[in-house]
Design a protein around this nucleic acid. Structure first.
Length: 415
RNA sequence: CGGGGCGUGGCUCAGCUUGGCUAGAGCGCAGCGUUCGGGACGCUGAGGUCACAGGUUCAAAUCCUGUCGCCCCGACCA
């Protein structure tokens, strides 16, 4: 992508609307813009990151045996009456009536819809187990949206649902999802904690939360400084059960939550199946959520320095940014385009800063965007014919001549 | 919803306490010139119903009332 063709409105100063680091950097690097409190537009760079995270999620979910589908955001009130959550979720539901006077809402979550769907198409134990997931926009009339994309009224969630004939099957799927989540968060470059939690309005009897330690985190968990085991926050939990060490309070962003739902929704919506003996039984369910858009903020909270974002490789909007420091110089620009072309041909995503800006501006913006590898072509190149490679994270610089350049870049990106 | 803060060109802010010339600065933007490896410099220029509504006054960005919006602290959650 050419910088001149895309849309990356970077900001030199910190917008006063942003308090948390991730929010500041998302605005400064041109990832998002606010339309109103809790509602954000994703600009090209933000969308790139979102897409990268989504492909990681799809990859791991598919590997875990889940099938992707897409459910409607627009939903009828009746479904919510059946589960009784029209009351428990009354506050967060965005509701309205259509021209026929039907009561509708924009889905804050999808247990009801998917249970209704499965109920109508699954009737035998032979069709189980089944795991379905979607990546979709949720709507919640949050009491207090804050920290930019972290608590938004419109946000993207990956929600998966498992359907089993017995508890053992549920346990299986639950563990599979737990394992998939670990892979997803590791690939996103996150340092996270997994803790047992209260199922809350979701219902069911067991749940685990995935928490990312971050200064601006809204949640507090207790962590053992020695073995790093985390516990749900409570005043009585005074020390680690294993190490007997005093626990420390850690602020966290909740990025995922998985639940063993049991039969709460299958009973309410009559989602039953016939078992091998021909007996009618309610389907045993689990649900598994990841706050996809929120992950962007969580990743930035953990991966930044005074100069900007430092993207973990796999989520970086581009893997390489090429900086020709003088676009009027034909030799420099030709070299930049060569590198751009060669890397693109190899399937590496590259951003070419073809703007007519001074070197300092390009350096500052490149650091702010946080792309893993910077390729600098300036007067050093004119002198020695060597191109400079700079790693955003470590600030390491080394010079390479044309022959070994592309190979070296690939080595860095793969290692 | 309760508590606190803020609203002045695209961005960051000054001016408001103590009303008074055509409402300012820096950044950004446009043009010209000089610069050119870590957010350059000079000159010229465009861009603002001072959030909105009402009130007080000869006169309101400034004082009063109300409304709206944004941020932060609490309850909710991915």
């Amino acid at each position: 992508m050419l910088w001149s063709k895309t849309f990356i409105p970077t900001l030199r100063e910190v917008p006063q609307e942003a308090e948390s680091i991730s929010h500041q950097l998302m605005l400064r690097a041109g990832l998002v813009r606010m339309l109103m409190a809790g509602v954000y537009s994703y600009l090209p760079l933000g969308l790139d990151v979102l897409n990268n995270i989504e492909s990681i999620i799809r990859d791991e979910m598919n590997k875990a045996g889940a099938a992707e589908l897409l459910l409607p955001a627009l939903q009828p009130k009746e479904l919510w009456l059946k589960s009784g959550r029209d009351k428990t979720l009354a506050e967060v539901m965005i509701r309205f009536t259509d021209r026929r006077g039907r009561d509708l809402c924009l889905g804050p979550t999808h247990e009801e819809v998917i249970t209704d769907l499965v109920k109508n198409s699954v009737s035998s134990y032979r069709q189980l187990p089944l795991v379905l997931y979607q990546i979709q926009t949720k709507f919640r009339d949050e009491i207090r949206p804050r920290f930019g994309v972290v608590r938004a009224c419109e946000f993207i969630m990956k929600d998966a649902y498992s359907f089993d004939q017995d508890e053992a099957g549920l346990e299986n799927n639950y563990q599979a999802m737990h394992a998939a989540y670990k892979n997803i968060f590791r690939r996103c470059g996150l340092d996270y904690l997994s803790i047992e939690a209260d199922p809350g309005v979701m219902g069911g009897n067991m749940s685990h939360e995935f928490m990312v330690p971050a200064v601006s985190g809204e949640d507090v968990v207790l962590r053992c400084p020695a073995c790093k085991i985390a516990y749900a926050f409570s005043e009585d939990q005074k020390s680690c059960l294993k190490c007997k060490v005093k626990l420390e309070k850690v602020n966290c962003i909740e990025i995922g939550h998985i639940f063993k739902l049991g039969t709460k929704y299958s009973l309410a919506l009559e989602a039953n199946f016939l078992d091998a003996e021909g007996k009618l039984k309610p389907i045993i369910m689990g649900c598994y959520g990841i706050g996809v858009s929120r992950l962007i903020a969580a990743i930035i909270e953990q991966n930044n320095d005074e100069n900007g974002i430092i993207w973990p490789g796999e989520v970086s909007p581009f893997r390489v940014v090429v900086l020709p420091l003088d676009i009027a110089d034909k030799k420099i620009m030709q070299k930049a385009q060569d590198i751009y072309g060669q890397l693109s041909a190899k399937g590496v995503s590259v951003l070419l800063d073809d703007r007519d800006e001074r070197a300092g501006v390009k350096f500052k913006d490149a650091d702010l965007l946080g792309i893993t590898l910077q390729v600098v072509i300036g007067k050093e190149f004119l002198k020695s014919n060597e191109v400079e490679l700079k790693l955003r994270k470590s600030n390491e610089k080394f010079f390479k001549n044309s022959e070994e350049l592309i190979r070296e870049i690939e080595k860095i990106l793969n290692g």
